[in-house]
Structures are given as C-alpha cells and as structure tokens.
Design a binder for these strands. Structure first.
Lengths: 196, 196
DNA sequence: AGCTATACTTACCTATGAGTAAGTAAAAGA
DNA sequence: TCTTTTACTTACTCATAGGTAAGTATAGCT
C-alpha cells in the first residue's frame, strides 16, 4: 500500500536469518521468504538481487549486532565474568528457545562456495568474537574472577567452538546439550566466591 | 567392464561422504557423484534410489566405522588416555588434512528435514559416541590418568562439541583451530607424569 | 501539474535437481 | 544352452531454484 513506510527489507532479513539458522543457506529459497511475507518472489530480488547479496547482508547484519553488543559491554565497564554471562545466556537463549544454530555452524558447509566478500565477512566476524573472548578471559584471570590453564586464545577457542557445536547437536538430543555445556564451562571457569 | 567386480557402490559412498563432509547434504547432487566416477546419473539412483537412501547409507556407514573402532579399542583393553588420543588424532587428521567437517556438523542444518530413519540413526550415533566418551573420561579419572571437575557426561559434551565446532570453523581461520582446541583439551585433561 | 524514484507485481526464462522407465550387455545359475 | 539377475545406460519427466524484463501504483520533489 504505502511503499515508503513498509519495512519489507527488514522483514526479509529477519525471515531469511531465521531460515538460515534453521536450514542453512542451501536449505531455503526466495520462495520460503516471499510466501511467508505475503509478497512476490521478485520483491525479494528487488531488495537483494542475488542470493549472495542476501547472504552478505545477513552476515553483516549479524556482525554489526554482535559488534555493537561487545562495544556496549566494554564501554559500560562490565566485569569480565558478567560479559561472559551475557555471551552464555544469549547463546543458550537462541539455541534452546528457537532451536537456532550458530551462524558459523549454519554457514560452515556452504563456506567454500561463498563469495569472497562473504568469506571475508565471516573470517572478520569470527576473529573479532575470538579476540573479545580471549581478552575477556585474560582480564578475568588477572583480576581473579576466572580461572583456567594455558593460553587465553586457546581457551577462547575451546569455549567458542564448544558452544557452537552444542548449538548444532542440540536438536539431535533429548536433553539440552547447550545448557549442559555452558554449565560445565561455568564450573570450570568461575572462581568460587570466598565462602563456599 | 565386468559388473560383478566393480565396486561402484563403495565408490559412490566414498565420494558422497566426502561431498557431504565438505558441502553438506544440500550442497551436492547426484551429478557431482556420477561425473566424478565417470558413470551416469541413473547408475547412482540404481544403488541409492532416493537421496534419503544415500544419506542413510552414509550415516550408517560412518556409524559402523565408529562403533567398530570403539569396540576394538575397548576389547584391546586400551587405557582411557590412549583411547582419547585415538579420538583426538582421528579428528585432527580428518579436519586438517582433508578439511572435512564432522558428520554431525555437516548434517545439522538439514536435520529437521531428514527422514525419521536418518534422524534416529544420527541420535543413536551421537548418544553412542557420547556414552563412550563419558565412560572413558570417568575410567581415566578413577585410574588417575585424567583429571577434570564435574560430571563425566558434561565434560564429554564439552569435548565432543568443541571438536565438532572446531572442525567447522577451521576453514574460516588462518590457523589450525582444531589443533589449538585439542591441545588445550589435552593440557586441561592430562595429569602430568610423576616427574615434571 | 508533471516528473522521477521507490517499491513493488506479473510474466517470464533457463538451469539444475531428484527421480523414473525402458533398454542392454555381461555374468551366474539351472 | 537358455534364463535370470546384476549393473548399468539412454532418454526422458517434473518440480523448483535463482534470476530477469517490463509494467504499475504511490510518494516525494520541482
């Protein structure tokens, strides 16, 4: 009706991201988006000419969301342990509520066939999250609220991959693997408060 | 040219499994298999009428391979730490050499659209591996060669998901995440030998 | 009022996917 | 030797996928 106010583009991104995190990039079509929104297939092509454009938009949308959150947490001077908790709870919420799998996991199988731009965006995002996690772990260990052995980079890799992996197999198990994994990571990382 | 000795079926499985672990189930077609083997498309359909039949065969092939290895290791009375090492090295070999991702990761995005038989096969395989890992960890801790806090089931979940996740993001990183993750897991788990 | 840009729709095209039916050559069995 | 079975091939069908071209209604600008 009034093209100017309808936020079709945002709705497309929202829907596409849900489809991506449930079925992977090869697992949904433009039709799955258009029928859901009650529009025509070509309308999706209007906003995102090729599927590669759409994929790139999804990754960039996701990346800016994550980067915004990281920046916000750091600017608020949130303690390392709390920052970790935000990460844990976001992961658990996405996974257990909606059964969404992690963006990296969703795109892993498609990776080698993605455009250069998209591959670069993924690499950049992953290294950014990894950087933040490693720094947070290191800060937490220095201030005595977190404990772990070895290199913060390596520990960050274990934590990130475990959560990602857990989000993927969650659907294949009767119990909530994501919750189990996060609880185990907490038990290993958190220094008990004085009396315990 | 003698149909009886040509092991086309096995070659199909081999090729399909490689494609599955590189591109996911939606990421390859019968054509990718047939052209690689120099046969016609319908020949693949002869052995595996539907893609679901093929997928099921791949999962079952993979499962019997794993189950055979587990049984062998246990019957040989291999110590827990050595059993773990076999698991680590197999994972690292697959991931770093051929850049194959884990079967669970490869099928995660397709999971909800898989046949019941295939879903059941995946659940069964996952719980089998998990059972073995948890038992091995527990035995290792009891005998003093492995150390970790918390429930063996939970620790098994962390280890399995971390390796799986690492195998998926390995292609998105310049360094060998699988190696980093496995080394970190070793450092956390292995009890140093007496003099150190 | 008239023009332009935006946000679509209708109506296509082409490639590719899974899948099938009918035919064929060779080996195995009776 | 004749028949059946195995392991294919040729030659298709049909659905869906991504993508495009041309048309249309509305909003905003001049």
């Amino acid at each position: 009706m009034s093209p100017r106010q309808s936020n079709t583009r945002e709705k497309i991104v929202e829907r596409a991201r849900s489809l991506l995190q449930h079925h992977g990039l090869d697992g949904f079509s433009y039709r799955d988006i258009s029928t859901h929104l009650g529009i025509r297939n070509a309308a999706v092509h209007y906003h995102f000419p090729s599927k590669d454009d759409l994929g790139l938009a999804l990754v960039e949308d996701f990346a800016s969301e994550i980067e915004r959150d990281i920046e916000h947490a750091q600017r608020a001077g949130m303690p390392p342990k709390d920052q970790l908790e935000v990460y844990f709870q976001r992961s658990h919420g996405d996974a257990s509520g909606d059964h969404r799998i992690c963006m990296f996991g969703a795109l892993a199988t498609s990776y080698s066939r993605l455009s250069d731009a998209m591959q670069r965006a993924m690499v950049r995002l992953r290294s950014g999250v990894h950087r933040w996690l490693a720094d947070t772990l290191e800060a937490g260990r220095r201030s005595g609220t977190l404990r772990f052995v070895g290199d913060p980079e390596a520990k960050a890799a274990v934590i990130a991959t475990a959560i990602q992996g857990a989000r993927q197999v969650n659907r294949m198990s009767p119990d909530d693997i994501v919750a189990v994994v996060i609880d185990q990571l907490r038990e290993e990382l958190y220094v008990p408060t004085s009396k315990e």
